[in-house]
Amino acid sequence: MIEVKNVYKYFDERCVNNDISLTIPQGSVFGLLGPNGAGKTTLIRMLATVTTPDRGEIWFNQQPLSSKHIPFIGYMPEERGLYRKMSVVDQLLYFAELKGLKRSEAKDRVKHWMKKMDILDWADKKMEELSKGMAQKVQFISTILHQPQFLILDEPFSGFDPVNADLIKELIIEMKNEGTTFLFSTHRMDNVEELCDNLAIIHQGEKILDGKIHDIRRSFFQNEYDLCFSENPMILTSGDSNNIPKNQENDIHTSTLSSQPDQLLFNQYKIQSMHSDYDNRFWLRVQTNQNQTFQTLLNDAFKTGKLIGFQEYVPSIHQIFVNQVTEKES
């Protein structure tokens, strides 16, 4: 739906967006990540038709992006505000009309959304009389009143309390299911994993990574697995008798345990990390090499101790982000 093709943007000879290309599929949520000053807002402003690229093109539904697409785009900038002296209704109607909505239609939609957001009673209040949470709701409504096909949200959850943030999240999912395309810029990685289908990381004006979240995480999978034991298997090997009867229930395991209890995991696999948690469970992250299969690891784990959890470790977006950015900087 949106295609960014080799876009450059300069401020005073300084390149803020350097050869950025992105594709945002219809009906998806796209996360735009990057440290402060990476050029996210600059890119977003171009997508929102506030500014234009110095070089390169942006396409919207197979057409070069222009002012005629304004009614189909919704934009909530990071720095946002409303007219303090205007009433809630007047304000929303104004924004709707600017987006080309007819007044009668705008009125109906304003009413609908205010009801949905539970602020109908405040319709005639001036903005300065509203609490921050309510102002945020009004701000969000003003962004989506004209039912945009493409919604750009710059740090959408900054300044929102958790209740409102959840409300907005639900709305985003609802709208996504109706076919709306989203572009998000955020620092909150949990939101990215929760909501986004695709993402791109930009750093110092350049795109350093992009793709489907699932694919990106898979591509950073390094044959690491998390193993969780009910207690520290090391203690077990030192001959703590309390736990032996439990293990004896399973013949195979008891036999191996008694033979060479600790060496199996600790000697044959690369241990990335280990720690105990508050419930005294013991977590072990191991990496397999090419000769070691998932199956052998599982067998060896059973032999080592009372295994209660097992999963492959795929790095979180947060980790990937931090790694990528620090890697680029060093």
């Binding site: 402003r45 929102a48 038709t49 506030v50 002012s67 304004i70 785009i73 934009y75 909530m76 900038p77 720095e79 946002r80 505000g81 409303l82 007219y83 303090r84 924004f95 600017l98 987006k99 003003s142 962004t143």
Partner: peptide, 17 residues
Amino acid sequence: MEEKTNRIVEVIVSSVK
């Protein structure tokens, strides 16, 4: 100036030239 200092203007110029 009000539109600028209250940070309304960015929303507005995404709809109006």
